[in-house]
Design a protein around this nucleic acid. Sequence first.
DNA 1: GCCAACGTTGGC
DNA 2: GCCAACGTTGGC
Length: 155
Amino acid sequence: MNYWLLKSEPDVFGIRHLARLPRKTGHWDGVRNYQARNFLRDAIKKGDLGFFYHSSCAEPAIAGIVEIARAGYPDHTALDPEGPHYDPKSTPDNPIWYMVDVKLKRAFRRPIPLAALKRNPALKGMKLLQRGNRLSILPVTSKEWNAILKMETTD
DNA sequence: GCCAACGTTGGC
DNA sequence: GCCAACGTTGGC
């Protein structure tokens, strides 16, 4: 079992959107970066856990925990010419992009802000906090995972 | 809105 | 294969 951090923009698809879906389960799609794609296609497994992170918003924060409900499969939003994630290079026979389904396990009563993560010495070296990181999915070590959970309970 | 960081594209 | 131009991400 592996841990991940999945970014999303709360204005577009935030944890509240996810919470309202049937079985609190939805697509996490639209990734158009090859490094991130490789995580989705090759590494992430059903049953893995992820932090659901809110980015590009007033207070970037980890908003809760999701479980991977379905491992990587072709991202059909790449095939829709009308959609915002259309990519003409992707075809049904040769899909380039992948997505997963996520199920909301728990929304944090109080999200853990990016600023707090930065202040935690245990998280020094976490990929999310490194310069220039722009990947929308990142692996999280079990040490980082536990350190972050502890921040919530001691909050 | 600004800007740094980074990925991608395309001319050569 | 180099590299400048451009687009995107995302914090602030």
